[in-house]
Computed example of a mutant assay.
Amino acid sequence: MNIAFSPCPNDTFTFHAWVHGLIDNAPKLDVTYADIDKTNYWAMAHKGPEIMKISYAALPYVLSDYQLIPCGGALGRGCGPLVLTKGNDNAANLSEKTVAVPSDKSTAFMLFTLWAAQNVPHGIGKVVVLPFNEIMPAVKTGKVDAGLVIHEARFTYKQYDLTMMVDLGDWWEEDTGLPIPLGAIIAKRSLGKKEEITEWIRRSVEYAWKHPEASMDYVMAYADEMSVDVAKSHIDLYVNEFTEKLGEDGYAAIESLLSRAAAEGVVPQCDLARLRD
C-alpha cells in the first residue's frame, strides 16, 4: 500500500509502527516523504499515493475522490501557526507589507486569511510562497516583512530574533472554542478500506505512545538537523487525542473552519456530510 506523509516528527512518530511492520495484519507500506504543499496538489490533481497526509484546507477540493480518515492527522490546541516580524509591526501595517507563507493551500494560510479579514482593514499587501524552512531567514534578512510559520518554528523563532505578531491558534480557539484542524489523513474512495486503514493507523498511534523511544532513530533520521528535545516537543504538541480519534470536537472544528473559509471565498463550498462517509 502506498502512502505519503511529511518527514516531520509527528508524522514519523505516528506511522513508525506501521512503516516498520509492527502492526499485525497491516499491509506493507511504500512511503513517500513529501511536504504537505506537494501532497495537497497531488490530491487535487488526482495523483499521488493511495493514502496521503494533506492540509484540511485542501479537503473541499478532494472529498469526492478521497475519504477523510478519522485518525492519524494533526488537530489540537496551542499548536497554531504564528505570524512573525522582525520588529513590532501591528496587524494594520500588513496592508503595506510582503508576507511569506509556506503554501497558499494550507490550513495555516486559511487561518491567516480568516484572521486578516477581521484584523487587517485594507487586506494584506502582498503574499509570496516560500518553503517553510526559508521563511524565518527571509524575515530576519528583510527579504520579506513578515512570515507565516508552522511546525517547530514556534519553538525556534526566537533564535532568529523575530517577534510574534499573533498566534493564529490562540485567535482561532478564542473565536470558536474549538481545536485547530491542521493536517488530515485521506485515502482514495476507490480503495474501499476506510475502516481497515483507520484501525491500522490507530494501532500505530497506540504503539507509538506505548513505546515512545522505539521510533526515535526513525524520527531523527528525517528531522532535518532538529535537536532531540525540539523533536520531542513537536511530537508532544501535535500527537494528541485527536490523532487517535477525531471525535465530535474534531469534526466540529473541521466543519467550522471549512464553512467559514467558504463564506470568505477562500475555498469552494463542499458537502460537509462527506467528511464522515
Rank of each mutant, 00 (worst) to 15 (best):
V230Y: 07
F5D: 04
I69R: 06
K143S: 08
D249Q: 14
A223T: 00
P102Y: 11
P27W: 06
D224Q: 10
K210Q: 14
G123D: 10
A4W: 06
V149C: 12
V19P: 00
V230N: 06
I69Y: 05
V19T: 14
L162K: 12
L59I: 05
P7R: 13
N119D: 00
K97G: 02
L272Q: 03
F155Y: 15
K53E: 08
D167C: 12
N10T: 03
V239S: 05
F13I: 09
V266G: 02
R274A: 15
F242M: 06
G183Q: 12
L237D: 15
A153F: 07
E255V: 14
D224R: 11
G265A: 10
M44Q: 15
V62S: 01
S103Q: 06
A153R: 00
A117D: 06
S259G: 09
K232E: 10
K140P: 03
P70Y: 03
G76I: 12
I185R: 11
A262M: 05
R154W: 09
L68F: 10
P9C: 11
L82P: 06
L84I: 15
V31F: 10
G73K: 03
A74L: 09
G87W: 11
E199C: 10
T243G: 01
C71R: 01
S204F: 00
P181V: 04
E264Q: 15
G147E: 11
V205R: 03
P181A: 07
E195A: 15
V228D: 12
A116L: 01
Y66I: 01
Q67R: 00
F132T: 05
L82K: 13
A117M: 13
A100K: 02
A252F: 04
I51V: 15
